[in-house]
């Protein structure tokens, strides 16, 4: 068996596995971090993993629709970051150094 035969082709599965790994890292970060800003960054990681999946499927299925969806995900991510960071700034203005655990005002 020569080296050329061992060499595996770059199938869409490679991209999908990478996206799954990035998504899992983002999910774990969202669960273990306390800083709201870092939690937002982890949400961005998860969204980016999903966009990578969309583009991979777009190429694998030969369909532009997947790339259009990446566009929409991008817009939603931008809106989410704007509103989320405004919330963080508004909270931090009223109380210093608020972690996600300190914000328990709405706990029943």
């Amino acid at each position: 068996m020569t080296l050329a035969q061992i060499e595996v082709g770059l199938t869409p599965a490679w991209y999908l596995v990478l996206a799954a790994m990035i998504f899992a890292i983002g999910a774990v970060g969202l669960l273990i971090r306390r800083n709201p800003l870092v939690m937002f960054m982890c949400v961005e990681l998860m969204l980016n993993a999903v966009t990578l999946t969309f583009v991979s499927f777009s190429r694998a299925l030969d369909d532009v629709g997947g790339q259009v969806f990446v566009f929409f995900v991008l817009v939603v991510a931008a809106a989410e970051v704007v509103v989320g960071l405004a919330l963080v700034v508004a909270i931090m203005r009223r109380r210093q150094g608020a972690d996600a655990d300190d914000l328990s005002l709405m706990r029943g």
Binding site: P12, L16, A20, F57, R59, L61, D62, D63, G65
Partner: peptide, 19 residues
Amino acid sequence: ALLAGPEVVTGASGTTAAV
């Protein structure tokens, strides 16, 4: 889910517009 089956990508191809 990704690697169990022989075919990773299933579904109709190019329903919107082909690349």
